[in-house]
Computed example of a mutant assay.
Amino acid sequence: MSTTQSERLRELLEPLVASQGLDLEEIAVDAVGRKRVLRVVVDSDTGADLDRIAEASRVLSAKLDESDAMGDAEYTLEVGTPGAERSLTEHRHYVRATDRLVRFQLHDGGELVARVLAVDEDGLDLEVPGVKGRKTTTRRLAFGDIDKARVQVEFNRKDTANTKNNDTTEDEEA
């Protein structure tokens, strides 16, 4: 039997989130003045767009209204995604971060920034960017060596999968 409010909420809401094709990543209840805010973070392998989040919010709100999980006090429900710079804590998070740049804090105190190339049950294959003219290298990193990991936002990365050959001129198109 669960004892904390977060555990009870997780038991109540997780099946509903799963029925929407989403994973329940996090639940937090925070006091904001006299009110409380219930924050629910959801995600999926294919991402969670605004329509999916809105539908999940409606389903969760209806279930919370018919239960006494939040008690009688006023609260606000906020449903969202982990965001661009998410922390990686579960195996599925690392899989979803494939081809993304990640900053790793290692158990030995070191730090590494690398692109995730592949993920298996034991760890990650990484592409480590070259520094000061050095070539890019690959590295294997075991999950046991990772203390923390967080996806990094890249503003100037070229998307090689979607680039087209734009060598034609206006005269050639006419």
Rank of each mutant, 00 (worst) to 15 (best):
E66P: 00
D45Y: 07
T160C: 01
L38F: 13
R100M: 11
T160M: 10
L60F: 01
L124V: 07
Q105T: 13
T98M: 04
E154Y: 02
R52S: 10
R52T: 10
L13A: 08
A28F: 10
G110L: 05
S67E: 00
E154V: 02
R115E: 14
D171E: 14
D99T: 12
M70V: 03
I146M: 01
K135G: 05
E25R: 15
T163F: 11
L88D: 00
D122K: 12
R150D: 00
L13E: 01
D43A: 13
V29L: 15
E170M: 10
E25C: 15
F104Y: 08
V29S: 10
G133K: 09
G130D: 04
R58V: 08
V59N: 06
E78Y: 09
G47N: 10
G109E: 06
G83C: 07
G110A: 09
S2I: 08
T4F: 13
G130Y: 09
E127K: 14
A48P: 05
D159C: 07
T46F: 04
R34G: 13
D49K: 07
G130C: 06
E85G: 12
K148G: 02
A28T: 15
V151E: 00
D147A: 13
R92F: 01
D108I: 01
Q152R: 02
Q105K: 14
S61N: 15
T138K: 13
R115I: 08
A54I: 05
G33M: 05
E66A: 14
S87V: 11
D23L: 08
A114D: 04
V42E: 03
L60H: 00
L60Q: 03
G83D: 11
E85F: 09
G144C: 02
V116E: 03
V153A: 10
R157S: 09
D45V: 00
T3V: 15
D51W: 11
R140K: 07
R134C: 04
A48Y: 08
D45R: 04
E11G: 13
E7M: 09
R52W: 03
G71Q: 06
D68H: 14
V102S: 03
V79S: 00
R157I: 02
Q105H: 11
V113C: 07
L126Y: 01
R8F: 04
K35L: 10
L106V: 05
D65Y: 14
A97R: 01
K148D: 09
G71C: 11
A118T: 13
D49M: 04
T89F: 03
E55R: 14
Q20N: 15
A114Y: 07
V29Q: 08
L64T: 08
